[in-house]
């Protein structure tokens, strides 16, 4: 139950939202789908003085082509990512990841931007955005800046977003034709967060590839596996990928789903699985 009073604003323009954010002096929270913020408030883990909804701000959702890049509005709902033809064609990893988020109701409320700023270490989009080389576009009253996804996540539920900034767009380079990609996750029940998740991209020609892992530390980690697969995606190559994933998961920590050792071992398993699957798809 949310027993503390707070102000609620539903601005109709981005500028209005930015100025409300500015005025709040850091004690406001932006709300998109509310799938993370509302539970945090209910449990008393977040108690903002003001909640600013982005739901009435036009132009923050949808998937557009911008040359070699997909420009995805921060307010794009999971259901759209799961079903949008441009996503399916140019960034199928996002659609794969969207399938796993919550349940039908959550997928119609929750948003891409919301997941990224919440930055739960096991969230589905985090390794996907790293593997896709996504850029995060942030806007404040002062202007716009763009951060590489791999630099965006700083710690558990901590990002490089600053007071007064709104995540407005995620820019995802289109995968070249002939690429292979795979997203897989280990979870206990449908709809829950992953224990460990992994996203891989193998480029056309199968000489270059990368894999990103979530749930194996405070932030997602990415490994360039090109050196391992350059001479073919053999069992031996996959073993080296596994070893690299194991090493990259050195900051894994235990929780109710398993201890650090288990998480690290799962990094090994899932890195191998997604690289194998992505390589099988690549031409």
């Amino acid at each position: 139950m949310i027993s503390r009073e707070y102000e609620f604003h539903a601005p109709k323009t981005l500028n209005e939202a930015l100025s409300l954010l500015e005025k709040s002096g850091g004690n406001a929270k932006l709300i998109a789908g509310g799938m993370s913020l509302v539970p945090m408030m209910t449990l008393g883990l977040a108690h903002p003085d003001a909640v600013i909804s982005l739901n009435k701000v036009p132009g923050l959702d949808g998937v557009k082509e911008d040359g070699g890049v997909l420009a995805i509005g921060a307010m794009t709902r999971h259901h759209v990512l799961k079903t949008n033809p441009l996503i399916a064609q140019h960034a199928p990893l996002l659609a794969e990841a969207a399938k796993y988020v919550g349940d039908v109701q959550v997928r119609h409320r929750g948003t891409l931007g919301g997941v990224l700023v919440h930055a739960d270490p096991a969230a589905d989009y985090l390794p996907v955005c790293l593997a896709l080389g996504a850029q995060i576009k942030l806007q404040s009253a002062k202007g716009v800046r763009t951060v590489e996804a791999r630099d965006f996540f700083k710690d558990i539920m901590t990002t490089s977003i600053e007071d007064g900034e709104i995540l407005v767009e995620v820019r995802v380079p289109k995968l070249p034709a002939g690429s292979g990609s795979s997203y897989q996750r280990l979870h206990r029940v449908e709809g829950n967060y992953a224990i460990v998740n992994a996203a891989a991209v193998v480029e056309p020609g199968k000489k270059k590839g990368r894999v990103a892992l979530g749930g194996v530390g405070p932030t997602p980690v990415m490994i360039d596996v090109s050196a391992h697969i350059a001479s073919g995606v053999s069992d031996d190559a996959l073993r080296r990928v596994s070893d690299a994933a194991f090493a990259a998961a050195e900051n894994a920590y235990g929780d109710l789903n398993g201890d650090a050792k288990y998480k690290q071992a799962m990094a090994r398993v899932y890195a191998q699985r997604v690289v194998r699957a992505a390589a099988a798809q690549a031409q």
């Binding site: 206990r188 029940v189 109710l256």
Partner: peptide, 27 residues
């Protein structure tokens, strides 16, 4: 799936359905 986990000081660590994992029809 379901487990009510306490730490040594007697704090319950599974106080919501996010931590107290129940299967649903799809599981």
């Amino acid at each position: 799936f379901e487990h009510l986990v306490y730490d040594e000081s007697g704090q319950l660590l599974t106080t919501t359905f996010m931590d107290y994992t129940c299967p649903t029809a799809v599981d």
